[in-house]
Amino acid sequence: MADTGSAITHTPSVVATPAALAAIRELLRDHRGGIAFFQSGGCCDNSAPMCFEEGEMIVGQVDKLVGKVGGCPYYMDFRQYETYHSSQIILDVEDGEADGFSLPAGRDGRHFITRTKICAANACNV
């Protein structure tokens, strides 16, 4: 991503909490082919991290790999990626049903969520 010259120039990144990593491990037991995350945008599910079996969603030219969580890819539309500038996405788990067509976080009744840390001057390097 090009440096825009603004104060915020870091690229987006993603990390997962221990609860999210545990949920990913649970999912991988049932979905041997792997799982992948797609950052949602817009309408009723806005910032929800959508979790699918790998290959369910065809990864296209618009998809930018933000990083990997628990060994699983986390994608975002490149146009959205450009607006995320220095956001560190923190993947976590909360109670409640998953949004859209997303898999639950490990088991029914829990879903993945994102929190965000806006990184200033390398503060979010992991």
């Binding site: 945008g41 599910d45 929800a48 959508m50 699918f52 969603m57 859209g100």
Partner: peptide
């Protein structure tokens, strides 16, 4: 479908 973009893309797929 009315909803968010990732699901919309999946529906189109």
């Amino acid at each position: 479908f009315t909803g968010e973009t990732v699901t919309g893309r999946l529906i189109m797929q």
